[in-house]
Design a protein around this nucleic acid. Sequence first.
DNA 1: CGAAAAATTGATCGACATCAATCTGTGTGG
DNA 2: CCACACAGATTGATGTCGATCAATTTTTCG
Lengths: 229, 229
Amino acid sequence: MSINATGPIACRYCDLVEVCRLCGIIARRESGELQRAGTAPRTLPVGARLFRAGEPAHSLFAVRQGMLKTVDVGTDGEEHVVAVNTPGDVLGTEAFGKRIYVHDVVAVQPVAYCKLPLSLLSTQYARVNELAIALINMLSRASVRRAPPVRGTIHQRVAALILELSRRFEQSGADGRRFSLGMTRQEIASLLGTRIETVSRTLQKMHREKEIEVAGQQVTLLSLKPATV
Amino acid sequence: MSINATGPIACRYCDLVEVCRLCGIIARRESGELQRAGTAPRTLPVGARLFRAGEPAHSLFAVRQGMLKTVDVGTDGEEHVVAVNTPGDVLGTEAFGKRIYVHDVVAVQPVAYCKLPLSLLSTQYARVNELAIALINMLSRASVRRAPPVRGTIHQRVAALILELSRRFEQSGADGRRFSLGMTRQEIASLLGTRIETVSRTLQKMHREKEIEVAGQQVTLLSLKPATV
DNA sequence: CGAAAAATTGATCGACATCAATCTGTGTGG
DNA sequence: CCACACAGATTGATGTCGATCAATTTTTCG
């Protein structure tokens, strides 16, 4: 029932903020929170796609609120969750090279997001130095933020996922101790490279052993703490 | 015994080539193969490190010949192979942001490489536009080239690794049907998230079933072909 | 040649997949 | 408003792939 009921992420926590500011999209308010000039707030309902693999890429996106999944759709049409995307994440960066998106990105919760057309980047030549460096730094950071480790036992992987989500929520100002997984067991299984029954059993086990409390997608951290990773 | 005895990769196959050219390192020979001005050819013996995690980053590197492994060294000192690096790969790109390398990179074969000091990038402001775009495209490509899938059965993962190596050798002009794995079973096991005995058994099984021929690190592809992935 | 590292092979065990049934919650139409 | 349908989640029984323990064998190299 209860979903992370926090508001949209503040711009200062967004990976895109430097690029965004330099492109002149953010209104010139130095206190600069969510103020954006010229662009209507964009939203996406559950199940809708931000973009699809193979589509020509014209924009970068920043997640402001809600959660999405990045999926690989195999030739057989089977989909594989390769990442979850939370507020502050920038999506579409792999498109700079070939100008074609390489994944499908689907909302698993109602999503609010920002859109930065790539065309804007090329009209900002006056500040190209600063901008280029900001972009380069951003891409560089993105290349480090990889998928959760698909190593170790399932217990470790589930724990790692929960802690990673906790860390992200915490970092973007939400509650890091009690939050929603945002995904179905099926999606978690796909992300961690295992099966739905195993995810379920593992969560129940963690509950029994008082590491966490689970009720549907709602999770509360008890004894589970970082460094356990 | 026999190792991939091909020469160094041609610059035109290197991911760094555009950046390199714009920085004026490559001599102005339009036929432009391996000619590099001002920099001595650099080599690395087996076991030596190109750089270590935590070191201040001052350069990008491009692999010309040989093979390296990218390893994560845990707090307990245990090392985990997260990628193998072959000619044409660019290393150190994650360092743009924090100016600190995030992995150890170790030669598993004798290596020849190019070094591009980051300082050069900032002295090329005249061509900053072109350069920035080249860099951005490169980083973008790098963010896609991920680790081999740590999914599916061991058989599938081993097959995927072999085919990926085959593809890379092929692409850089070497023989894609017969080549050296370059790594010990231990390193392969670490990369694929399994155990040395399992790697050995799997390779033997593939041999028995005439998918490949194996002799030490030397591999020959028989019935194993792409699309099996 | 002899020592050490790497690789292979065998036996056994456990974690996770698989198959299958049940339960819970949510939305829908009578 | 309740009954029903359906998707998601849980729980159980059983089988199997890969981990683990252990012993050789092969290769590498001083």
